[in-house]
Design a protein around this nucleic acid. Structure first.
Lengths: 137, 137
DNA sequence: TATTACCCTACTAATTCTATAGGAGTAAAG
DNA sequence: CTTTACTCCTATAGAATTAGTAGGGTAATA
């Protein structure tokens, strides 16, 4: 299951992608427009800013804004920041590899092989989908 | 992330798929061979039996066995039983559809569109992979 | 300097995951 | 017919994660 954090994060990002570039939008505005708890959204946007996806402006008329063109924001990046590794088991993770404690031989593990296929297909989708694609509906 | 339950369940199923068909294997044997906590495995196998994937024989020399040919056990079924719906959000689930509370218009929701793609690609993989494929390594 | 809005830490409530406990029931072997 | 070796089933508990809340701090702008 997708976490609410990721779901809300993507909604917020697409909302920002629809705005004029560089114009800050306040947390309160996004919260109202997308029906997201203000405080929860605040922490999500903070995460997105720290990851380099968003910029922010303080004070009156401040808020968050996209740092890149929506075309250049791939869902691979978004998912990794919000949801964590794309792989469903760490033994097939490209960026966060870890050996399974219970598994003596990875190459003989059925789960391993299955999850490599799943990872590759998901990576493909996230890699070829950008924020711009998502707001084109 | 894949739950341990699913991981262990798949390992147990592939272990059974490697045995002579119809010959029961005890929980204890699978537990030792696959390094899975005995009691946890017990509850997993029970789930698999109730779902119709496994049969069991009680008493001495009893145990669990596959009810179908490994070729006919698709991962779609296995994943649904162990991990739950394939869809990452319920608004794109084929079997467990539910409207999102926070989302006024599904067709305009970016998350919805993205998750349909992910669901379809995962369904494809699980649908074309059987237990027989997984033990062929 | 008052206001607006982001920044940050800490905490709590709820849920899910990962088992564990303990016994009841069943079948086969001696 | 009794022992042994299994599955069956319910309940529950500890750990981890998720989801959300509280509250004050800090910077920028008018």
């Amino acid at each position: 299951m997708l976490s609410k954090k990721t779901k809300y994060g993507i909604k917020a990002l697409t909302y920002l992608a629809k705005q004029e570039t560089g114009v800050p939008v306040s947390i309160a505005t996004i919260s109202e427009m997308e029906n997201i708890s203000l405080k929860f959204l605040e922490s999500i946007l903070l995460t997105l800013r720290k990851s380099g996806l968003l910029g922010s402006k303080k004070g009156k008329a401040g808020g968050y804004y996209l740092l890149k063109d929506p075309k250049d924001v791939k869902m691979t990046m978004v998912m990794r920041v919000l949801e964590g590794p794309i792989a469903m088991v760490s033994c097939v993770s490209l960026n966060y590899y870890e050996k399974c404690a219970d598994c003596p031989d990875e190459t003989a593990c059925a789960v391993h092989h299955l999850m490599i296929r799943v990872r590759d297909s998901n990576l493909k989708i996230y890699g070829e989908t950008s924020l711009a694609d998502l707001i084109s509906y």
